[in-house]
Amino acid sequence: MWNHPTAKQLATLPTFYSTENISLKDKVIYMHFFFGGCDWYVAEFDGEDAFFGFVILNNDLENAEWGYFILSELASINIKGFEIDRDLYWQPTKASNIERIKKCRLGA
């Protein structure tokens, strides 16, 4: 994985269920990973290897959804030398302010 988050960066993320009283549209997205037409938006972290957030695969906005995904699995993906990347310029943003999420059926 290009630009793997550091332990210090991961430690700043909200833990699982700590934002459960916040509506999905108001959840803050703290990290963004991407590859081709795929996006993984991070709202929470379990402190080990799992994230909770919003996922769009293959530009399929109809089937995009909130759920869990695993950092080590993202890091292991390598297709002909291409890897998932982390957006180094990402600023924490409410899900309702992210255009790609707003366009999705289950988004913000």
Rank of each mutant, 00 (worst) to 15 (best):
R105L: 09
K94Y: 10
M1T: 05
L13I: 08
E73F: 02
L74R: 01
Y30H: 15
Y17W: 14
T19P: 10
I56D: 06
D87S: 14
T15K: 15
N58Y: 07
E20W: 10
E44R: 12
L10F: 02
I101M: 10
M1P: 03
Y68L: 13
G81L: 07
K27R: 15
A50S: 14
I77P: 00
F54Q: 09
Y89L: 14
K25L: 06
P92H: 07
S72Y: 04
I70S: 11
N63I: 02
I22G: 04
T12M: 08
I77E: 07
N21G: 15
C104K: 10
Y68Q: 14
D49W: 03
S23I: 02
W40Y: 13
L88P: 09
N63G: 06
N58W: 07
M31I: 03
Y41D: 08
E83S: 08
F45C: 04
L61D: 05
E44M: 12
I22Q: 06
L24G: 04
W40N: 06
T12Y: 00
T93V: 11
V55L: 09
D49H: 03
C104V: 09
L106Y: 13
I98P: 10
I70W: 13
K103E: 14
F16V: 02
D87E: 13
K80H: 12
C38M: 01
N78P: 00
F54Y: 15
W2D: 13
F45S: 05
F69P: 08
K27D: 02
N58R: 05
F33G: 06
K102T: 14
S72Q: 09
V28R: 08
D39C: 09
L13H: 02
E62D: 14
E20M: 11
E44K: 11
W2T: 11
G107P: 12
K8Q: 11
K27H: 11
A43W: 05
I98Q: 12
W40M: 05
W40R: 04
C104A: 13
F54W: 09
R86M: 15
L74V: 01
E48R: 09
G47N: 06
G36S: 10
E20H: 12
N21C: 06
A64S: 15
F52A: 11
I79H: 04
G37P: 00
N97I: 02
E73D: 13
L10K: 02
L106M: 05
Y41M: 14
I77S: 00
V42E: 03
F54A: 09
G37L: 06
W40A: 03
I101S: 07
W40I: 04
A75M: 05
R86L: 12
M1G: 10
F82T: 03
